[in-house]
Write a protein that binds this DNA or RNA. Structure first.
Length: 579
RNA sequence: CGGGGCGUGGCGCAGUCUGGUAGCGCACCUGCUUUGGGAGCAGGGAGUCGGAGGUUCAAAUCCUCUCGCCCCGACCA
């Protein structure tokens, strides 16, 4: 008998009737109610048996697809020496998210939030020749990131399980192939998990690297905003989405009018300004004073646009970018916040492309309670550099094909990066190429949040009664509910079916608790097992059992003699639908 | 870290303003009845009221400090 089959009475699934107050989103609520997880501390969870089973289902799919793609599994330590992080330069860069401590010998250590350093260390020690490349290594392991604010249960925990893979190639072309290969494996993985997802272009963040895609599960509870093209396959994280400036703006051909200062008492925001002056926000230049790690700078965007800090950071090549505090604003502009303008600024000025050539704009006068009208670049202020600095809007066209864009939310469950030689250079992971030259290995890295994938699946597949598991990640494939345990025939048939299906390799959950029918139905719905079999005196009167899919309200009777076969086929067809 | 909120049997909450025997629903245990959508009756067990200090004849309740958790923001796979 397959060991994954279980009897409720001999298993441990502590279900909850009421929703714990701490849970906000559906997946968190339902994972607590089904007894999948329990919280130990903020962002730290115990996985109870039912939750662990779901995690393992996802892990198994990930392993199969990674192995199929030629990746090789290993397991790296979670405690890592600080030394290695100092060598890569991330000891200082990573910040408080990296949980650091000293061991008894007073050696700096940390809990691994990711494993580029460790894996690169292995490769630098063991790989010396192009003949050993390419290679892709992966692990499924617990990570720790000391998040400022963990939330949504397992969705954004401090301790979490992640599959991380790292590819090593002799050159860029090879790395691109490895990247492609992983990208395709990811598509296969999430498809098999029964998820509606989209791969989007993304910023690389602190992991670094040259380009990257995020795999987003489409869900309104997602924390990331994504845009996708309705016509072509373009999809992107909102913060990464390029804006293509199209055509000439109406005001570009205008005559430059006479510069004019106006009194605007207590008018600070764009809304206040546009209603005070009765103009449209597109005629206003927003002057934002920011602070990088080295200097204050001014960023200009149009009044109806918002600044994309990621783009600004990249355009400036800055490591840090934060809104300047009121004192800095006063120092740079000579005015309190709300009246900043670009005229006469000593700091570097970057402007969004949409402002290029715009005439007779309105901006702050760098003087309290004053704005200026008819401001023109060149004549009245200077721009050091034009760049794509703003957030894309629903009015903007697709940067690839010009089609219209759709905005939505997503949960990031996977991320693939092309790292290039960032870590191999820092850690001197070199090999000898076929010409005998020492060359850095070219790396890629690829993560999947295992727990987050389970949570995202629940977020996407549920109804008011509980989970509707895609069969591929459901802890059990079939749940059997014998309704009247005191009836020996009911119990016998249920037991027999349980044994028979289990022997056939199905994972079956037998609810053999002496509970009333309603209670069992509710729990079965909560747990979300795809196929439900009910055995009762009523069904046995017709020498049948009842079959119902969790995903459909339809009830059907199947004759006892055919039951096992029909159930097997039903399960199989559910798997087939995920291919 | 800034703003807001909450800590009272396992879970969900009332009681705190106005100090005076610690309560309700669910869950749990025993018995009987009940059995197709979270049963009924009867009986029962279970709480340092987050912690420390203080005020008071008397503190869940008032004061001070502290810890934990949740939400919003900044941050982030």
């Amino acid at each position: 008998m397959k060991s994954s089959s279980r009897r409720f009475s001999e298993f441990f699934i502590p279900t909850l009737k009421e929703v714990p107050a701490e849970a906000e989103i559906i997946s968190h609520q339902v994972m607590l109610r089904t007894g999948m997880i329990r919280k130990l501390a903020a962002g730290i969870y115990s996985y109870l048996p039912y939750g662990l089973m779901a995690l393992k289902k996802v892990e198994d799919i990930v392993r199969e697809e990674m192995n199929r793609a030629g990746a090789i599994e290993l397991l790296l330590p979670s405690v890592q020496p600080g030394e290695l992080w100092m060598e890569s330069g991330r000891w200082n860069y990573y910040g408080p998210e990296l949980l650091r401590f000293r061991d008894r010998h007073n050696r700096e250590s940390c809990l691994g939030p990711t494993h580029e350093e460790v894996i690169t260390d292995i490769v630098r020690r063991e790989i010396h020749s192009y003949k050993q490349l390419p290679i892709t290594l992966y692990q499924i392991q617990t990570k720790f990131r000391d998040e400022i604010r963990p939330r949504f249960g397992i969705m954004r925990a401090r301790e979490f399980i992640m599959k991380d893979a790292y590819s090593f190639d002799i050159d860029e072309q090879g790395c691109n192939r490895s990247y492609e290969n992983m990208y395709r494996a990811y598509e296969a993985i999430f498809r098999r998990c029964g998820l509606r997802f989209r791969a989007v272009e993304a910023d690389t963040g602190p992991i670094g690297g040259s380009f990257s895609h995020e795999f987003m599960v489409l869900s309104d509870t997602g924390e990331d905003e994504i845009v996708s093209c309705q016509r072509c396959s373009y999809a992107s994280n909102l913060e990464k989405a390029e804006v293509v400036e199209q055509g000439e703006k109406s005001s570009v051909s205008e005559e430059e009018r006479v510069f004019q200062v106006v009194d605007t008492p207590e008018v600070r925001t764009i809304e206040e300004l546009t209603s005070f002056l009765s103009i449209g926000p597109e005629n206003v230049v927003k002057t934002l004073i920011y602070q990088t790690e080295s200097e204050p700078i001014a960023l200009l965007v149009r009044g109806d646009h918002s600044l994309n800090e990621t783009k600004a950071k990249n355009a400036l090549n800055a490591e840090e970018l934060t809104m300047a505090d009121p004192d800095t604003v006063l120092e740079v502009t000579g005015a309190p916040m709300g009246f900043a303008g670009a005229m006469g600024l000593k700091v570097k000025v970057l402007a969004d492309l949409s402002l290029k050539g715009m005439k007779n704009m309105v901006m702050g006068a760098n003087e309290e309670d004053r704005h200026v009208l008819n401001v023109n670049e060149g004549r009245d202020f200077r721009v050091d550099q034009y760049a794509d600095l703003r957030m894309i809007t629903p009015e903007d066209p697709c940067p690839r094909c010009g089609g219209s864009l759709q905005f939505g939310k997503g949960i990031e469950v996977g991320h693939v990066f092309k790292l290039g030689a960032k870590y191999s250079n820092a850690l001197k992971a070199n090999f000898l190429n076929e010409h005998g030259h020492e060359t850095p290995v070219i790396m890629g890295c690829y993560g999947i949040g295992i727990g987050r994938t389970v949570a995202a699946a629940i977020e996407q597949c549920h109804d008011e009664n509980g989970i509707i598991f895609p069969i591929s990640i459901s802890p059990f494939e079939v749940i059997i509910l014998p309704l009247e345990l005191h009836e020996s025939r009911v119990r016998e048939v249920a037991d027999q079916l349980y044994g028979q299906l289990s022997d056939n390799g199905l994972s079956v959950f037998l609810d053999d608790r002496d509970e009333r029918p309603g209670y069992k139905f509710k729990d079965a719905d909560l747990l979300g097992t795809p196929v439900r079999i009910t055995v009762s005196t009523r069904t046995l009167r017709k020498e049948s059992v009842e079959i119902k899919l969790r995903s459909s309200p339809e009830l059907n009777l199947i004759p006892l003699l055919e039951a096992a076969t029909v159930i097997r086929k039903t399960v199989q067809s559910l798997y087939d639908s995920l291919k």
